[in-house]
Design a binder for these strands. Structure first.
Lengths: 196, 196
DNA sequence: GCAGATGCGGAACAGAGGTTCCGTTTAGGC
DNA sequence: GCCTAAACGGAACCTCTGTTCCGCATCTGC
């Protein structure tokens, strides 16, 4: 109901700095992975480490906020598909493909997802994730109603698929990086309705 | 040709200790994840840390050896399917399911796969991985010849599937752990031949 | 403009954990 | 049994990085 006053600092420079930190963190994590140092994030934001810690009590809290932002972005993608793509299969597959593309471009969030068993990360983003799941459910229901998705498909089948995409991107096997788009294509095919 | 004299210590106690360390490492990593301390591994092996380091110069070398052992176990599973399961689909799906089960029981190796971009881990296990890929290829060719697998399936499609299983096991989302067996089932379905 | 509060910078701290080092112990050939 | 080289144990070391702390700067209401 009331806007979250807790997250909004009062002084103008503080508001600016908070955003600078978020942007810098995205850049640093994307470029260096999760092991990017807090000091490095501060440097990129043009502030001191102390300032980073004033806005985000721990590294994980910062990661949690980035994760929440990302869930919201993914949710928007799904919502956009629901609103503008008439073909149910295209809406479904297209949304997942575009979301995978977003994940592919953000090592920070992939890291947060794959490496964090910390509640401090997940809990903060739980609400946003819930919203993502809700719109995704609509997408799936539409596909099932149209007969293009297997009848037993559940929303809970989607996170593992996305986790698979993330793993495919980040795992460096002896053969180097595998083709995640190809992997997603196969996985999507596994969720399609069989012709009898 | 010549047996790898470099890896085989001469004194009997040294040989014993090397094995005790490997066993202890498997246990410790499985139970505590990759963050298990070297000291903890030494404790479980009933030796001092120094001894661990005499046999494995770094933690990653130890991990690399465990990874190689695991690849060999997975290869044996595949080979067994090839030799004893007459039905091509059952041989294929069964082998992958059993291998997934093996991975599910070994957090050490999942961790090594997902967290290591270090060549020290991968290089050491490269040969064993190669062998695994070779028998897997036979499995796939048989399935394709029998018309149960999609014609464009490649061996390189399998590691991402297994990575997806690992990710599904290790990622703790807001909903807790997802069902990796279900995920594998869908993924396998995506590699099956479509009826027309 | 002033005063007080709010925010900032970055040196210093802490502890975690991989690795080394060396005095001591033990296996195994003679 | 003796001797030597190989192996062992584990305390100490070192580095790395998240976090704290506090004197100083900056903003904002009056």
């Amino acid at each position: 109901m009331t806007p979250p006053a807790t997250t909004a600092p009062r002084r103008a420079d503080a508001v600016r700095n908070r955003q600078k930190v978020l942007d810098a963190a995205t850049d640093a994590f994307t470029e260096l992975g999760l092991e990017a140092r807090m000091e490095e994030i501060a440097r990129r934001a043009g502030v001191g480490v102390g300032t980073v810690y004033r806005h985000f009590p721990t590294k994980e809290a910062l990661l949690g906020e980035l994760l929440a932002e990302k869930w919201r972005a993914l949710r928007d993608t799904v919502q956009h598909s629901l609103d503008h793509e008439p073909d149910p299969w295209e809406a479904y597959a297209g949304a997942l493909q575009r979301n995978a593309e977003i994940m592919a471009g953000d090592a920070a969030v992939r890291g947060a997802i794959m490496l964090s068993d910390s509640p401090e990360v997940w809990d903060h983003a739980a609400g946003a994730h819930q919203e993502l799941m809700e719109v995704t459910e609509l997408l799936i229901e539409r596909g099932k109603a149209a007969g293009v998705l297997r009848g037993d498909l559940q929303v809970t089948d989607i996170p593992p698929m996305m986790a698979g995409v993330c793993a495919t991107i980040d795992v460096r096997g002896p053969a180097g990086q595998a083709d995640w788009r190809r992997h997603l294509e196969l996985a999507l095919d596994g969720t399609r309705r069989r012709a009898a």
